[in-house]
Design a protein around this nucleic acid. Structure first.
Length: 469
RNA sequence: CGGGCUGUAGCGCAGCUUGGUAGCGCGCUGCGUUCGGGACGCAGAGGUCCCGGGUUCAAAUCCCGGCAGCCCGACCA
């Protein structure tokens, strides 16, 4: 059995590999209703760590958490024309409740701009109430025809921020702040995923937004995944929901609003950004278990050494877990690899006799013999090294698969294996239509230096073109 | 919604052509030997063969009608 692979190799069938990992790492199962998802404890613990990291950053940016209802009157959605048009194909609508047909159908929220807009209008009186910075953690429903666990499910978990500002500049600056200091910082520092930042072309904009910013990550198969988005909504929703305030001159003025979100899709992105043929590879900062201590065999002295190591690692703030010597060694090693635990510490009689343990890195497979007394300091510094190297490695991979091109035809070719960078002037609406026939899209527009432009009419913008999830 | 495929044990499948009382691998349970890269032996448990109807002495198998799922074509975090 040795050497036989447990997972479908990525090179053979990437989607199958993804499904295998999700199942075998015990991340999630399909729910009974098509498109729904059961998130299993291991997958959920990763999501919880994401929530905690993102939530901390959101609060640092000044927003407060609140909760708005799952059920939204259908009439609310209709108040913003582009919004309802964009979302109507994927709405789940409640027509019956309490044993009767409802007078007005109720929509299960696909996003909460409308309800929150209604309440912002109520709560905002004067410029002193601005900016109003809200966030909520919730589930939302967008009916999916082609669901995939974490990446596209009919119900998913997310965080949605909603803010109101006195002027366009303040709204735009705040959306940018969230985008850089919450999303991009989280993606780079915690998930070790490098991104291309930019704005969506008008065709890809959020329904009802005046501008949409995105963080695009590259997966191991070269396809793009939108990992978070931030929208400037202009006065579209303020107008629809009468979000007025009295300015310093005593006149009524319309607010400018923003919204921004990140979801359980991040879990899928994490899997696909770092995973290899042996399974998940988790960056230490996100890993629920950073180090697993494996007893090579279930013997008294081995178990005692393991217990002592767990205690030591705990004092060093390393999230660790013990694998007692039940079952075959190889099997247990494989199982922990599939789950992507960054560091494996093997404790066996042979090493122990010399006062050593074996420490193995999940990302490189590198194996070190380390004296018992040095385990905590070694692991702590190793985890930081791995976090950094995983980011650098992912960035090198992304860069190696990103090509500057000068024609649409070259872009199509380059997007076979990664991203193409092409002058936005050379794309335009016609180019987008051409790309669509090749199942390609403009993922984002950015300035030549990689920064985020204010709008798509700026001179000299670069379009990042790729296949996407 | 259009085209192709599949529903048999927890999972993956064979059996169906040519009807005859339900099988394999993995997993699971118990005991024992093992354990430094997916261990092995022995003994077990587990099935409305997707649903409904029909043909037949007899249907997983043949016929009719449903339902569900998967893959490929237009949207989305």
């Amino acid at each position: 059995m040795a050497g036989q692979s447990v997972l479908t190799p990525q090179s053979e069938d990437f989607p199958k590999w993804y499904q295998d990992v999700v199942a075998k790492a015990e991340m999630a199962d399909n729910g009974p209703v098509r498109g729904t998802m059961v998130i299993r404890p291991y997958g959920y613990s990763i999501w919880e760590r994401m929530q905690s990291e993102i939530d901390t950053r959101i609060k640092r940016a000044g927003a407060q958490n609140a909760y708005f209802p799952l059920f939204i009157p259908e009439s609310y959605l209709s108040k913003e024309a582009a919004h309802v048009e964009g979302f109507s194909p994927e709405l789940a609508v409640v027509t019956h409740a309490g044993g009767e047909e409802l007078a007005e159908p109720i929509v299960v929220r696909p996003t909460s701009e409308t309800v929150i807009g209604e309440f912002m209008a109520k709560w905002i009186q004067s410029y002193r109430d601005l900016p109003l910075l809200l966030n909520q953690w919730a589930n939302v429903v967008r009916w999916e025809l082609r669901p995939r666990l974490f990446l596209r499910s009919s119900e998913f978990l997310w965080q949605e921020g909603h803010t109101a500002h006195a002027d366009a500049a303040d709204a735009s600056a705040y959306a940018m702040k969230i985008h850089l200091e919450v999303y991009n910082d989280f993606l780079e520092k915690v998930l070790a995923v490098p991104t291309y930042l930019g704005i969506k072309p008008p065709s890809e904009r959020f329904a009802g937004a005046t501008n949409t910013m995105t963080c695009e990550g590259m997966m191991r198969d070269g396809k793009a995944l939108q990992m978070a988005t931030s929208h400037e909504l202009g006065q579209n929703f303020a107008r629809a929901f009468d979000i007025y305030f009295q300015n310093e001159e005593g006149q009524a003025a319309l607010c400018f609003t923003t919204s921004w979100g990140s979801s359980t899709r991040l879990v899928g992105g994490l899997i696909m950004a770092h995973g290899d043929d042996h399974g998940l590879v988790l960056p230490p900062h996100i890993a629920p278990i950073q180090a697993v201590v494996i007893a090579v065999r279930d013997a008294e002295d081995v178990n005692a050494a393991c217990a002592s190591l767990i205690a030591t690692l705990g004092r060093a703030d390393v999230r660790s877990s013990l694998d007692r010597g039940r079952g075959s060694f190889g099997r247990r090693v494989t199982d922990w690899e599939i789950k992507g635990v960054p560091v494996r510490i093997e404790v066996g009689p042979r090493d122990l006799a010399q006062g050593l343990v074996s420490i193995v890195r999940r990302d490189t497979g590198e194996k070190l013999a380390v004296p018992l007394n040095d385990v905590d300091t070694t692991v702590v510094s190793l985890l930081e090294t791995m976090q950094e190297e995983m980011f650098v490695g992912a960035r090198a991979f992304r860069d190696s698969r990103t090509r500057d091109v000068t024609t649409l035809e070259e872009a199509v070719e380059a997007a076979e294996s990664g991203f193409a960078r092409l002058a936005w002037d050379l794309v335009g609406e016609k180019g987008e239509a051409r790309l669509k026939t090749e199942a390609l899209t403009v993922r984002c527009l950015q300035r030549a230096d990689g920064s985020i432009p204010a709008d798509e009419r700026e001179e000299g913008l670069i379009a990042i073109i790729a296949k996407s999830y």
